[in-house]
C-alpha cells in the first residue's frame, strides 16, 4: 500500500532518507524549475558517491559535479541560457576524471527511465543509432530478426530519489504543476521516492480550481521553500542571469588556476552552505529578490 505523503519540517528533514551511493534525479530544465533548496541541503549532508541524473540540466548539475558528493553525472545536456561559457565544473571534473560524466541522448534517457518505471528488463529506441550519445552502459545496438530494423536495447536507469520543484502541493502530495513539465515526469515515474519542493503548501480544496494542473498523489515528501529555486526561475522568480554569470566566471577562474581544492570552499561561500535557505536568500538581499519577483 502506498503510504500517504508527509510534509517535511525543513530541507534537511526532507532528505533524511538519502544515503551515499544513491541515484538522485534532479528536476527542472536549463534556467528553470530546479529545486535549489533541496540541492543546497543535499550538499550539506555527509554523502558520497551519488549518481546525479538530469535531462536538460542547468548550473545546479554543474554545482553538484564540483560538490564532492557525486561520483557520476548522467545528463543529456548541462548549460545555462543567457550566460556564455560551458558548464565549468562538469567540464573540469570530466577532463580530470574526478566525475564519471556519461554521454546520453535525451530520448535514450527517457527510454531508460520508462524501462525503470514500467519494471521492464529493457525498453527499445530507434534513435541515436550510430552516435556516441548511445555509447554508455545502458545501451546496446541490436537488429530485429523479423524486420532487419536496427534499434537500441536500453536498460532501465533506476532512480532512488527524485528531487523536483512545483508551484504548490497539498499535504497529501497532490502537486500543482506549472505547465511545462521540464522532463520531470520521466524521473517522477521512475523514482522510488519523490520529494517535491513547492512555493507554498495549500489545502486540497485550493487545487479544485485547476484540476488539469494537478498531479494526484505524486510526491511522498512535500517541502515548502518559497523562492527556493533561486537563482533559477519559477512561477515566483525570474532567473538571476547576473548570479549565474558570476558563478560561471568564478569557477572558470578556479579552473584557470587549476585549484580544485578551492572549489568546495567557493561553493560553500556562494551558496551559504553553513545555513538554511533563509540565510542564503538573505545573502542575496531583498531588493534583488524583489526585482526578480516583478
Amino acid at each position: 500500500m502506498t503510504p500517504h505523503a508527509r510534509v517535511a519540517e525543513n530541507a534537511a528533514d526532507a532528505l533524511s532518507g538519502v544515503t551515499s551511493g544513491m541515484h538522485v534525479g534532479i528536476g527542472g530544465a536549463l534556467n528553470a524549475g530546479h529545486p535549489m533548496a533541496l540541492v543546497r541541503a543535499l550538499m550539506q549532508r555527509d554523502l558520497t558517491d551519488l549518481t546525479i541524473v538530469s535531462g536538460f540540466g542547468g548550473m545546479e548539475i554543474d554545482i553538484l559535479a564540483g560538490s564532492g558528493i557525486a561520483k557520476r553525472v548522467i545528463a543529456a545536456f548541462v548549460g545555462a541560457e543567457g550566460v556564455s561559457g560551458l558548464p565549468p565544473l562538469l567540464r573540469w571534473a570530466g577532463e580530470e576524471g574526478r566525475v564519471d560524466a556519461w554521454d546520453i541522448d535525451e530520448g535514450i534517457l527517457l527510454t531508460a527511465l520508462r524501462a525503470a518505471a514500467q519494471k521492464l528488463p529493457y525498453a527499445t529506441w530507434r534513435c541515436g543509432l550510430g552516435t556516441h550519445a548511445a555509447n554508455n552502459p545502458l545501451c546496446r545496438q541490436m537488429k530485429d530478426d523479423a524486420t532487419g530494423a536496427h534499434y537500441l536495447k536500453v536498460r532501465p536507469l533506476p532512480i532512488d530519489v527524485c528531487l523536483y520543484w512545483a508551484e504548490a502541493a497539498d499535504p497529501l502530495g497532490n502537486v500543482l504543476r506549472w505547465g511545462p513539465d521540464f522532463g520531470d515526469t520521466g524521473f517522477i515515474d521512475a523514482a522510488e521516492t519523490r520529494i517535491v519542493q513547492v512555493e507554498r503548501i495549500v489545502p486540497t480544496e485550493a487545487l479544485n480550481a485547476t484540476p488539469d494542473r494537478v498531479a494526484p498523489w505524486q510526491a511522498e515528501i512535500v517541502l515548502a521553500a518559497p523562492l527556493g529555486t533561486y537563482p533559477f526561475c519559477s512561477t515566483t522568480l525570474q532567473d538571476d542571469i547576473a548570479w549565474l554569470a558570476d558563478y560561471v566566471s568564478a569557477m572558470a577562474q578556479l579552473h584557470e588556476r587549476g585549484d580544485w581544492a578551492a572549489v568546495r570552499p567557493a561553493l560553500e561561500r556562494l551558496l551559504r552552505l553553513d545555513g538554511d535557505d533563509d540565510a542564503f536568500l538573505a545573502s542575496i538581499g531583498i531588493p534583488r529578490l524583489r526585482r526578480l519577483m516583478a
Binding site: 528553470a32 535531462g55 536538460f56 541560457e81 527517457l110 511545462p180 513539465d181 520531470d184 525570474q238 532567473d239
Partner: peptide
C-alpha cells in the same frame, strides 16, 4: 532564454518534455 518565466507564462500550449519524442 527559452525557459524564461514570462515566456513560459505566455505559452499558448503546454509543452510536455517527457513526451517530446
Amino acid at each position: 532564454r527559452t525557459y524564461a518565466r514570462d515566456l513560459i507564462s505566455a505559452r499558448q500550449a503546454t509543452f510536455t518534455q517527457s513526451r517530446v519524442f
